[in-house]
């Protein structure tokens, strides 16, 4: 499973973009704030449209400006983990976890809810409302929700951003296990050097 990414976005004042190849593992995308790291992830996910370039992940071409390929985000099968977890506030934890699972084609699912709940230690949170979760708990639920949607890869945007040191460690361990045990390719945005050193199998610097 490999990333072959080349995305460009023209903004009024400057261009944002990234061009890289990476063969699986956890690729840390780093760079100063304002370098457009989040925009790059959003372009890969299809949430914003690049002006030029292509997005290929494994065998699949998800975007290719020249060939006029633009797969909508819901069919890209990229699990996005946002800095702010972004759980659905009107659904309890279990319903959040199952949101993408239920939408995924059975053949695309590669993890069952029980496995994910066990893997991330979510068993005692299932009946809770998102608002009542700590930052670390919410982030683990968000990771579980992304894993259960049957993604071909994960996109993580500063998933430890809002967390205190104890919670950071708890979430970081989960991410390492996803990298090593589940072997999901991950694109991981951060500007924290320690985090990058501990998690990265490849590193890419923007800006």
């Amino acid at each position: 499973m490999s990333f072959d990414i080349d995305v460009r976005l023209r903004r009024r004042d400057r261009d944002i973009g990234a061009r890289f190849r990476s063969d699986g593992g956890l690729t840390v995308v780093t760079g100063p704030s304002g370098a457009g790291k989040t925009s790059v992830l959003m372009m890969i996910a299809g949430l914003i449209h690049p002006d030029a370039g292509h997005v290929r992940i494994g065998e699949a071409t998800l975007f290719d400006k020249a060939a006029r390929v633009d797969v909508p985000p819901e069919r890209r099968r990229l699990g996005y983990v946002f800095q702010d977890a972004r759980l659905f506030p009107h659904r309890r934890v279990l319903a959040n976890l199952l949101y993408g699972y239920r939408l995924a084609a059975p053949g695309h699912r590669w993890m069952e809810p029980d496995q994910a709940i066990d893997f991330l230690g979510l068993g005692n949170l299932l009946d809770r409302w998102p608002r009542s979760l700590s930052g670390g708990e919410a982030q683990r639920v968000a990771i579980g929700r992304a894993l259960l949607s049957g993604p071909r890869a994960l996109l993580m945007d500063e998933p430890l951003g809002g967390l205190d040191p104890t919670r950071r460690d708890e979430v970081m361990r989960a991410i390492e296990r996803i990298r090593d045990e589940l072997r999901v390719p991950i694109l991981y945005v951060t500007h924290d050097r320690a985090e990058a050193t501990r998690l990265a199998t490849h590193t890419l610097t923007l800006g």
């Binding site: 996910a45 819901e74 996005y80 506030p89 949101y99 993408g100 939408l103």
Partner: peptide, 10 residues
């Protein structure tokens, strides 16, 4: 952004 999250989930 919640709507964006839903889109990425399929």
């Amino acid at each position: 952004r919640l709507e964006g999250a839903a889109r990425t989930l399929g």
